[in-house]
Write a protein that binds this DNA or RNA. Sequence first.
DNA 1: TTCGTCATGTAATGGGTTACATGATTAC
DNA 2: GTAATCATGTAACCCATTACATGACGAA
Lengths: 192, 192
Amino acid sequence: MHGYELRKRLNTSLGVFRAFSYGTLYPCLKTLVIQGWLIEETAADSDPPAAPLAGRRAKIVYRLTAAGKEHFEELLAHSGPDAWEDEHFAARFAFFGQTSKDVRMRVLEGRRSRLEERLEKMRASLARTRERLDDYTLELQRHGMESVEREVRWLNELIETERTGRVERPSAEHEHDNNQENGGRPGDRGTA
Amino acid sequence: MHGYELRKRLNTSLGVFRAFSYGTLYPCLKTLVIQGWLIEETAADSDPPAAPLAGRRAKIVYRLTAAGKEHFEELLAHSGPDAWEDEHFAARFAFFGQTSKDVRMRVLEGRRSRLEERLEKMRASLARTRERLDDYTLELQRHGMESVEREVRWLNELIETERTGRVERPSAEHEHDNNQENGGRPGDRGTA
DNA sequence: TTCGTCATGTAATGGGTTACATGATTAC
DNA sequence: GTAATCATGTAACCCATTACATGACGAA
């Protein structure tokens, strides 16, 4: 798709991502083209649904190259040391539909243990400072800890679901292809 | 206190804030000095608990000036247009102990309505895109929304507590002074 | 004697935003 | 005719991080 559309999607569809500004997005797309992961298709038009002639500024439609797709899949699979941090994790999770089960398990479990570490620290510091802080600060910490605990529970559910190989919510039950090497069970598109 | 100590506190005590690096902290303190909100006290030492002579590198202890305190209180009270965003709110909340009840109410209610706006948007976009996304993306959105809903409930509790003028948790019940113009009810220090 | 922690600081870099420029098209 | 939205892009800036430099002290 083209830049503008991409940004809108990031804005609305995925609530978790903050939308990047154009000042970030367009230069970024350009570098991806230079690196060979994307190609620009200065698509005059391909399917005009009730075409009102040319129109507007020429859209630049970006498409993944073969190399780009390969690289992307590599990125999803190979989890670096900070793959468990908030934003990294959310990004990975958003593309779970394109990964295999074992990758998903690794990421989910990694995230969980990361959060458990964090909980440890929070509990420790809370115990240490308990008496020396005012009620509001304490309340803030308490709420923060509960948020983390809640995410751990969420992860537990997801891991369990993943393990038993089941769809987690009612949701749509259409059929679709694409998805490498995992018999297309849990994460397939719900697209018609 | 001095820079190093300040940073440690931000690291451990307040779990919510990410700790700033020294590269941020020290220059920042310097500018605050220049602006007149802080003064450096190249404190040789004031209370050596079992003083082992001079020792180490000279600590630079920072202290609020009168102007600084005034400025700070102004910042807490006068909420700008983005005072309801995540980090701004957390920062404000952390200093609730130093504010008056009506400021607290304004901030809490502002935050809540901000979150409710956000919920609206999320609900709308979720309804719009429901069928076009895979289960994982949907699950991510769902979890995000529930997080926001949870924070709204939290705020409701806090507002209610604030309104009826009560301490929200068991906590310590010591007495202390300092706190301007609000009869020292809910947010006072729990310090011994 | 070496390592960890205390303590302060600087320079290079990174990753993002804001504000602006451009211009056509659609909706009121 | 005027505003909002579509659509792409650039330049200036901001805020924070990383990596480094310096050095003394205490503990293993």
